[in-house]
Every structure is written in C-alpha cells, then in structure tokens.
Design a protein around this nucleic acid. Sequence first.
DNA 1: CGGCGCTACGTCCGTC
DNA 2: GACGGACGTAGCGCCG
Lengths: 89, 89, 89, 89
Amino acid sequence: MADGSANMSSSTGGVAAERLRSFLERVERLEEEKATIMNDIKEVYAEAKGEGYDTKILRQIIRLRKMDRADRQEQEALLDLYLSALGGL
Amino acid sequence: MADGSANMSSSTGGVAAERLRSFLERVERLEEEKATIMNDIKEVYAEAKGEGYDTKILRQIIRLRKMDRADRQEQEALLDLYLSALGGL
Amino acid sequence: MADGSANMSSSTGGVAAERLRSFLERVERLEEEKATIMNDIKEVYAEAKGEGYDTKILRQIIRLRKMDRADRQEQEALLDLYLSALGGL
Amino acid sequence: MADGSANMSSSTGGVAAERLRSFLERVERLEEEKATIMNDIKEVYAEAKGEGYDTKILRQIIRLRKMDRADRQEQEALLDLYLSALGGL
DNA sequence: CGGCGCTACGTCCGTC
DNA sequence: GACGGACGTAGCGCCG
C-alpha cells in the first residue's frame, strides 16, 4: 500500500477510523458555523423587512453588486490573458 | 406613510439611504464570512482526499449523519409533545 | 384518486407504465441531442485551437459576453422592481 | 510565423478578426441550441409532474440507467467499508 | 406549494 | 496519465 492512503488493515488498530472520525467532526463543526452565519443573514433581512425594505430588492442589489465585482475580475483576467498571449508571441 | 416603513422623502435627508447601505454591508460582510467557512470545508475535504479518503463517500456520510440527527430531533419533539399532553409527568 | 395522477392500479392494465416509459425515453432522447450539441461545441473549440487561437481566451470571451447579457437583464429586472415598488406605495 | 496560427499582422487586413468572430458566433449559436434542448427537457419533466409523477424519482431513474452498474456496486462496497470502520455511524 | 436562488456535484480542461 | 482547478448543470432549500 502506498504511503498516505487510507489504511483499514488490522495492523493499524483502528487508527484510520479515528482519523476518519476527525475529518467528519471538523466538517460538521464548520457546517454548524456556516448554518449560524446563514441564520444571521436571514435575521438581517428580517430586520430590514421590519423597517419597510423589500427583501427581494435588497437581495437583487446584493446579487448585482456581486456580479459587478465578478465582472470586473473577469475583465482583469481577460486583460491578463491578452497580455500574456501577446508576450508569448 | 406608516411608521417604520422605509422613508426616502426629502425630510429624512438621506437617513434611509444610510440605513440601506448599512443593511447591504452587513449582509455582504456575513456572506464573506460564509465564503471563508465554505472554503475551510473544502480544505478539510482536500486534506482527507490527500490521505486517500474518497470525498464523495465522506460527503455521503455527513449527509446520512445529518439526517439521523434530524430524525432524532423529530423523535424527541414528538416525545415532548406526548409528555406535555400527559401533563408533563 | 384524482384525475390526472399517476395510476398504477390493476384497472389501468399497465398504461401508466407505458406512459412512464414514454417520459423516460423522451428525456433520454433529448439528453442525447444535448450531448451531440456539446460535442459540436468542443469541436468548434478544437478547430479554433488548430488555427492557433487560445481556447482559454475564447471561452473567457464567451463567458464575459454571456455575463454582460445577464447583467443587462439583471439591471432591467432591478429597474422593474424599483418601478413596481414605487407603484406599490 | 508558423502556418495555421492565428494571424493578426497587418498583411491579413483583419481576416483573423473575422475568423475569430466566426468561431464566437458558432459557439454562441450552439449554446443557444443547447439551452433550447435543456428547456425541452424541463418541459417534459413538468408535463410528467402534471400527471402526478415525482420528477425527483424520474431524474433518479434516468441517472441510474445512465450509471454503470459496476460503479454502483463499488460505491456501495466502499460505503459499507467506511461504515463498518466507524462501527455503524 | 411553486418558483427561484444557492450550493454542491460531476465533467472537462490544462498541467506536471 | 493522474491531479487539481474551473466551468456548467442538477439538486435542494428558502421565500413568497
């Protein structure tokens, strides 16, 4: 067996199972944190809604701003590509 | 206009715009945190993969365990319901 | 049983099974067509590559043009939202 | 310059630009067709749903039919291995 | 409960 | 030829 691969053989005495359990618990912990953040986001929207803002519009603004950022990054990436293409001639 | 509603009239002097900006920034900040967490999760999976584990299977186990927890919570909720119906023993 | 629902009872004599098979085959036929189109796209990129074009750049241009279109649609949707929000006051 | 390479030199008088535009339009045309096919697929599922079929199950059947049987068995065997290593969830 | 947006998965491409 | 990264699609969950 190659080094570094998951090992279930008897000689490892359940070590792999412990390692596996560790990975699972780390992921589950992080997903718990993620759920908390997502809940916080929901609460912000709820608060805004409570003050009369239209959450649908808010969400669309958020999305649009994100797309603008992505677009800008794409433009820069494209420029970089062109520059490297020119440099490669 | 009803109290508590988003107010863009001239008498509020841009106060609503500031409030709106605040909400947007809070959401964007939280989404940034969420993205960080999601990245962390990806890294854990990558680390596990590097040790020979099949991430597809790992994700499947995570899903199964989450479903088990949900089932258990439902069971407990049902038990609570019965107990309260009995007068709380 | 409500009319129009999937019916497996003995009185239908396997009619539902035939209907089900029909849906599956229609989907599979369409997915086959889709696979053909996707293959055509790959061939266009391959042809361009054969003439010295950088497919990575081509793909990025395609993506950017698509994002521009999407952004424009988003902008219009946002404008519509604002207009309807104003009309709802 | 090697024959067959993208040529932007003055002697080609914008021919390469035309060629480039041609590639882009061919790809965009094909992607449009692909989008149409995908829409057709969605419509078939919608029609099936309207007759009481569970689209989630339909999609699963499609996937299973597509999936290689050997792969499925291997996946299950590996999952069982991990589960037994954990002592059963 | 129906649509829609987001996440997550599978696939494909480029790289080493 | 395998690995990792990126893209597009499909599945899922939230919102209305």
